[in-house]
Design a protein around this nucleic acid. Structure first.
Lengths: 366, 366
DNA sequence: CTGAAAGCGCTTACAG
DNA sequence: CTGAAAGCGCTTACAG
C-alpha cells in the first residue's frame, strides 16, 4: 500500500474525459438520443438503444454532474421529520447538521423542508404524518421515536415510491434506503460499563425516566435499557434497579420522589438515564450533596455538559446528532442527484465524554 | 428557536438568484468587466470599478460555483506531505480521508499530489522538502512531525505565497491557514486520567518510547507527554515514571529491557505510550501474563484494536486521522476555489475507546 | 422515434 | 480599458 499513487484514469492512457457528444458521435446519433437512454426517458429505437448502450459500457461513461446540475435546474425536495426543540436541547445539534447539509446540497438544487413534532406527544407525530400525506417531496429523513407509527407510514412511502432514511434508532424491518445513528443496544452496554466499572456489584442503581403523554419511552430508550441490563446480567450485578418517573418541569415533585427513594435504599450508588435528561438527576444529586453516587447519561447538551464539568455526572455517552442530520440529508441528496446508493446500516461511533475531553466535543462535524 | 424555519432569501421577497448578467446590466457594463472586478484581473476604469463594486455590495452577489467550475476548467493542485505507511498503520486512516476529499474536490478540478517521507528518519523529510522546492502546486497540507524543519520551510512557502494547513499537531507561530488535529497536550491529560483513575497514587508507571533515527520523538509525542505529566502533577501522583526505549522490530530486545525493568520495580502498575505503538508493550504484558498492569495508548490501528479487544489494553485515545486528512484537503480546496477561509484552529474531539465501543469506530467519516 | 438549437451562469481569448 | 462571442457538458422544449 505504501507507495501506491492513486492516479485517475486520465493520466494513464491520457484518455480525455468522455462527454455525451463523444458518445453520440461513436453511436452515430444525436446527444438528445444519448440523453434519452441515459435517463430512460422518451422512446428510442431498439437498434439505437443497443448501440448506445454498447458504447456507454465500453467507455465507462461518467457524467459530469456539475454540468448536469447547471443545465437541468431540477429541484429535489428532501423532507425532514424531526422533533421540535429549544436552543441547547438535543435536537438542536441534529438541526445544525441539517443546516450544513442544506448549504452544501443547495448547489445541486436540493432543498430541505422541515416537519416537526412534539417528541413527548404521539398525537403531534400523527398530525405530521397526516400533513405529509398531502405534501409532495422527493425523499424523507425520518426520526424514528414513535416506532409503532413510523412502521405503517413507511408502507405508504413504499407505495408512493418515495425513498426514506432513518435517524435516531433503526427499524430494520422497513425498506429504508439507509440508517444513520448508533446501535442503541450497544450504547446501553457502554453506559453500563462506565457506571458499573467502579461500583460494588451489590450496590443499587436508579434508572431515571421521563413521563410521556402516551406510551413508555422512545424506541431508542427501550433499546438502550435492554443493552444496559444485558451488560449487567453478564457482569455479576447483584443489586436492584429502581426505576423512577421524573417530570421535565417539576423540580419539587422530582425532589420528593427521589428523597423518598434514597431514604428507603441507602445502598444506591449508581444512577443512569436513557434519554438526554440526566441533568435532572444531576441537579438533585448536586443539591443534596450526594457525591457518592456515580451518574451516567446520554448526549452532550448544555445542561448535561455543565454537570459533567462540575463532576456531578461521571460520563456522558453521545451519538453525533450533527452527523446524523448531515448524513441523513446528504445521502438522500446523493441518491436523488447522482443515483448513488448509500450503505444501508451506518452505525456511528459511540462517543464517551469525560470532564477531560468534553471541551473539544464541538468541532464534531466532519 | 423552536419553530424558526430557515428559509433562504429566495422565498421571502422572491428575489431571483442574481447572476453576472444582472450585475452587468445594473452597472451598465459587460459581463467581462464585472468578471474582471470580481477576480481582480485586468484593468478597469475607476468609474466602472466603483459602480460595479457598489452593485455587488448592494445585491450581495453569490457566484454560482458550479457554473464557474464548469466554465473555467482551472486545475488546482493540493500537495499533501505525510509519512509513508503500510496497511493497518496510523497514516493509512489519514490517507483514507485524503482519498475521500480527493473524490469530492475533483468535481471542482482540484487534484491531490502526495509527497511521502519516513516518519522515523528526519533526512527523508528533508529530501521531500528539497523536492517541494522544485515543484509547483497551489497549496499544501503539512504533517508537522519534524517541527524544527517545518518551521523554516513555511517561511519559504510564505514567500512563494502558497497557503498551507497543518495536521497532526499545531505550530501556532507559523502563518498556517488552518490547523486540523487534536490538542496534543490535552490528549495527554486524557490518557493520564484513564490510566491513573484506578491506580494506587504511589504505583509506578512505564512510559514506552520508540527509538528514532534522529532526535527524540515527534512534536506531538512531546506535547502529549507534557499534558500527561501535568495531569499527574495536579492529581497527587507519588510514583515514579520509568521511560524505556523500545524498538519497532526487535521483540527479543524489547523483552529483555522490559524484563529487567519489571524485575527491579515490582510497584509498576501502569503503562503508557505517546505514539501509536502501544501494541508493543501490550504484546509483552500479554506474553508475560502481567494482567495487573493498566495500559493506555493512542490511535485505533489494527494491532492496538486487537489488544483492546483482548483486554490487555485498557483504553485507547484517538484523534480522527481520517477527518484530519479530509478536512485538510477540503479546507484548501474551498479556499482555492471559493476563497472561503477556514477557521484557524480546529481542535478535533479527543476520542476514548474501550472494548465496549471500539467496534463502531470505523464509520468515523463525517 | 429523432435531432438542431437554445440555454444553465460563468470564463476566456480575441478584437478593438 | 472594454465588449461580443464562443464555450464548459449537459438538458430541454420544439419541430419534424
Amino acid at each position: 500500500m505504501t507507495m501506491e499513487h492513486h492516479t485517475n484514469d486520465k493520466s494513464g492512457t491520457f484518455a480525455k474525459t468522455i462527454r455525451i457528444v463523444d458518445i453520440a458521435r461513436m453511436a452515430g446519433v444525436s446527444t438528445a438520443t444519448v440523453d434519452r437512454v441515459i435517463h430512460h426517458r422518451g422512446k428510442v429505437s431498439a437498434e439505437n438503444l443497443a448501440r448506445i448502450r454498447a458504447v456507454l459500457e465500453q467507455v465507462d461513461y461518467r457524467p459530469n454532474l456539475i454540468a448536469r446540475s447547471l443545465a437541468s435546474g431540477r429541484e429535489h425536495v428532501v423532507a425532514v421529520v424531526m422533533p421540535e426543540f429549544a436552543a441547547g436541547e438535543y435536537w438542536a445539534d441534529f438541526e445544525a447538521g441539517i443546516l450544513r447539509a442544506e448549504a452544501e446540497a443547495s448547489r445541486y438544487n436540493v432543498t430541505v423542508r422541515r416537519f416537526r413534532f412534539d417528541q413527548y406527544d404521539r398525537t403531534s407525530f400523527e398530525r405530521v404524518l397526516a400533513t405529509l400525506r398531502e405534501e409532495t417531496f422527493d425523499a424523507v429523513v425520518l426520526a424514528t421515536l414513535f416506532a409503532e407509527r413510523v412502521i405503517p407510514f413507511t408502507q405508504e412511502l413504499d407505495e408512493r415510491n418515495i425513498p426514506y432514511v432513518f435517524v435516531d434508532s433503526d427499524l430494520p424491518t422497513c425498506h429504508r434506503l439507509a440508517y444513520f445513528g448508533t446501535s442503541s443496544f450497544d450504547a446501553g452496554a457502554v453506559a453500563a460499563r462506565l457506571l458499573f466499572e467502579r461500583l460494588d456489584p451489590s450496590a443499587d442503581i436508579v434508572v431515571g425516566k421521563i413521563l410521556h403523554r402516551g406510551e413508555g419511552g422512545s424506541n431508542q430508550c427501550r433499546e438502550r435499557e435492554r443493552g444496559f441490563c444485558d451488560y449487567l446480567a453478564r457482569h455479576d450485578f447483584r443489586g436492584v434497579l429502581h426505576a423512577v418517573e421524573l417530570r421535565l418541569d417539576d423540580e419539587a415533585c422530582n425532589t420528593r420522589i427521589l428523597d423518598e427513594l434514597f431514604a428507603h435504599h441507602a445502598s444506591i450508588a449508581g444512577a443512569v438515564t436513557f434519554n438526554s435528561t440526566c441533568y435532572i438527576l444531576a441537579g438533585y444529586l448536586s443539591a443534596r450533596r450526594r457525591s457518592g453516587v456515580r451518574l451516567v447519561g446520554y448526549d452532550v447538551i448544555d445542561r448535561n455538559r455543565r454537570m459533567l464539568d462540575e463532576g456531578v455526572v461521571t460520563a456522558l455517552v453521545a451519538q453525533r446528532p450533527e452527523v446524523q442530520g448531515y448524513r441523513g440529508v446528504m445521502s438522500l441528496s446523493a441518491w436523488l442527484v447522482e443515483g448513488r446508493r448509500p450503505a444501508e446500516v451506518n452505525n456511528l461511533p459511540i462517543d464517551i465524554l469525560l470532564k477531560e475531553n468534553i471541551s473539544y466535543y464541538t468541532n464534531n462535524n466532519i
